[in-house]
Design a protein around this nucleic acid. Sequence first.
DNA 1: ATTCTGACCGCAA
DNA 2: GTTGCGGCCAGAA
Length: 122
Amino acid sequence: MNGRRASCDAAAALRRARILAAVRAIPRGHVAGYGVIARRAGYPRHARLVARILAEHEEPELPWHRVLRADGRIAFPGGSRGFREQCRRLRAEGVRVEAGRVRMPDPGEDLDAAVWGWDGAD
DNA sequence: ATTCTGACCGCAA
DNA sequence: GTTGCGGCCAGAA
């Protein structure tokens, strides 16, 4: 077998595993950005990799809907199937979504559910 | 090796 | 609020 190729695949599998773990770790009712997930998984600047992995995942329990763009908006094109599904799932767990976008935690306002920029400190 | 494509990001107009 | 653009990085062609 080709060792270089094998170690490459292994590295890819590891990235994938760590990223999926980071996504699973987002508490219910909370959200995090692609970049935040990448950073928490140990791969800063790999936001696009997170997106790719979410697009290909096959794990039914994965809370992929808790992952948003850096500005708090849903990454799917508005009106697309994924867009509506993500909206639905988020609202189902108490996250406020308005115009395809999750409300940011304004200072002074006590949001009980949707916490933007969640980074594990909670 | 080179080129193209993303469920992206940050910053400047 | 919006758009545009360069930067980013893995994977496929």
